[in-house]
Amino acid sequence: MSSITLPRRLSTALWRAPRLALAATLLPPLAWFLLIYLAALAVLFIAAFWSVDAFTGEIDRTWTLENFARIVQSPIYRAIALRTIGMAAAVTVTDALIAFPFAFFMARVAGPTLRVTLFTLVLLPLWSSYLARVYAWRLILAHDGALNWALNGVGLPSLEIGYSRWAMWIVFSYIWLPFMITPLFAALERIPQSLLEASGDLGARGWRTLVRVILPLSLPGLVAGSIFTFSLTLGDYITPVLVGGPGSDFIGNVVYANVGIANNVPFAAAYASVPLVVMMLYLALAKRIGAFESM
């Protein structure tokens, strides 16, 4: 019965030597991230300064800024980068506008049961198939889809936005909306009721309380949500392919084409550093506002 088994001996040894226990729990995940993920990011960073020999297609590992010069000088690559960043900004603003009243209703109006139900309903699409949701909008916005059927039904002319920037804007806003609602809800829920009462007691009407008390206090949640909506839009290339139509390439599309078809990994790496730098700046700014506490 009391035979000393291997797990027992091991656990006793680990209990006696906490450093060993720390090493046993920390080293495997640490090794995974260092040897694979962080190493891969380092390779990406270094490869951006390499080039590809135009004749042989081999990677030339001499240090050069040629890729970055090409990105800055080419009007096409500049336009694509601006399009991507602009769309990410538009989607972030749209989601903030849709999410704020909803999160406010969840946090300050709905009862506990309704709140839990709403929370689950918001998170459910988040884990369901991304492609299914993009595809659903392709069906809805198509020439003979549900949108035009509804518009014609009430006597309005058809909208041909199936493959356009409007479609991308709708789809991105739709897909990333739950990422904005969740942190906003967390921030709004945390505002003490007494602060709102104090604001009322001091004579502020509803609108003024909203602008002077609620909005500033929910700002970290807003910024936390915007990190997701902004970053996810910035790094996407599937939605532009599926609903964007011609001339709607994102940074991701150029990167993907250079990895796959053009086989120019150094250029792809350099171009991928554009969203990386943008996100780093964004994250640094968000950290100053204190967004990480409400994620």
Partner: peptide, 24 residues
């Protein structure tokens, strides 16, 4: 911070980084 990076960074960065790592 490190474990959240693969989903906090734009998807193409993680994908591109792993791709160039495996290829090289």
């Amino acid at each position: 911070f490190t474990v959240v990076l693969p989903i906090a960074l734009p998807g193409i960065i993680t994908g591109m980084a792993l791709n160039s790592f495996f290829v090289l």
